[in-house]
């Protein structure tokens, strides 16, 4: 059975690398694609409620982000990363975070900022400290406060030019009672997304369907959404219990503004959020607290606080990661042994 001469032909073709030699099959591309799939209900809701304006913003933002990503990588002499779909996700998320009437050129500016400044300047996917779409939204909000807070283009509520959160904040600032009561009909409208707001944030139900898909696909874990939304709920409940006249009920806070979009899609962006379960809980609670503070402090400039809350917590991510590292197997025992000596 001397087979020395056999099979040697396969030699130079063999692949040699370090273990492990099998892989789960998970990929960044698939994760990004799952996020896109999970956003489809919200996109559908945006198209339904805001029509052509939504289509215009989505196409503009996605195209801008993809183009900017391609150009940046090209200019930096790096590989083309359009294939990882992260720019697609950023474009989509940015569009969903914009008011329907925003001029196209501002959306383009936002897309360029998201990719060029908030992402590629830091080295691209994986290195950005802040969620690019949110950073771009903050950039637009500060640069073009007027257009970013003008909601008159809504197709359903032409009489009011403010979001529910905005109306409430103005009323409470003026010391007036709540401008509307959260009855069953209004709650259903809010749940479905029939109100003023950014094109992708209004339909809580569409966003929750997407979030369930992400959970099912294990792209995200429950920690951040649950901690975020839970904190908002508890905070709102306490406020309402203490002073029902000058605060809104819990379900108002859960269904309005960018909470669902933020908690399920923006605060769960893995690049800019903590890696451990405990860290994610802390992150979620922090986002929730900041959101409610920004929403309810009467002297605050903005009626909504989700974007800034997440961006601020993004900055704390490295610190949270550091503080919530796992206990290393046997470390406590080794320390005990050291102490005994």
């Amino acid at each position: 059975m001397n087979t020395e001469q056999q099979n040697t032909a396969a030699g130079p073709e063999l692949v040699v690398g370090v273990s492990p030699h099998i892989h789960s099959g998970a990929s960044v591309e698939r994760i990004m694609l799952d996020v896109v799939i999970a956003l489809l209900p919200a996109v559908a809701a945006a198209l339904y409620f805001f029509g052509l304006n939504a289509a215009r913003l989505i196409v503009t933002c996605v195209a801008t982000c993809l183009a900017t990503e391609w150009i940046c990588r090209r200019l930096m002499g790096r590989n083309n990363t359009l294939g990882d779909f992260s720019a697609l996700v950023t474009g989509l998320l940015l569009a969903l975070n914009l008011p329907p009437g925003l001029p196209t050129w501002m959306a383009i500016a936002g897309g360029v900022f998201a990719i060029a400044v908030a992402k590629q300047v830091f080295g691209g996917l994986g290195y950005n400290p802040f969620n690019p779409a949110l950073a771009a939204r903050a950039f637009l909000l500060i640069s073009f406060t007027g257009p970013m807070t003008t909601w008159s283009a809504s197709c359903i509520d032409a009489t009011s030019t403010a979001t529910p959160l905005g109306m409430v904040k103005e009323a409470f600032k003026a010391g007036a009672p709540a401008p509307f009561a959260m009855d069953g009909g209004l709650t259903l409208d809010f749940l479905l997304g029939n109100m003023n707001g950014c094109i992708g944030e209004t339909s809580a139900i569409a966003l929750l369907i997407g979030a369930l898909y992400l959970l099912y696909r294990r792209v995200i874990t429950w920690h951040i959404p649950v901690a975020f939304i839970g904190t908002v709920a508890i905070y709102a409940a306490i406020l309402h219990a203490v002073n029902p006249a000058a605060s809104m009920p819990v379900h108002f806070h859960l269904l309005t503004g960018g909470l669902m979009l933020g908690a399920c899609f923006m605060a769960t962006d893995m690049v800019t959020t903590p890696t451990t379960a405990r860290g994610r809980l802390i992150f979620g609670v922090g986002c929730g607290l900041l959101t409610m503070v920004l929403r309810t402090v009467k002297t605050g400039a903005y009626p909504e606080g989700v974007s800034f809350a997440i961006l601020i917590m993004n900055a704390f991510t490295p610190l949270i990661n550091r503080a919530t590292r796992h206990r290393i197997f046997g470390a406590a025992e080794a320390a005990k042994r050291e102490a005994r000596k």
Partner: peptide, 20 residues
């Protein structure tokens, strides 16, 4: 020059030299 196998891993010479 001939190669003995197809290397799969970190793109760095010291790392590659340590594999086989």
């Amino acid at each position: 020059a001939q190669k003995r196998f197809v290397y799969d891993g970190i793109t760095a010479c010291a790392a590659a030299a340590a594999v086989g």
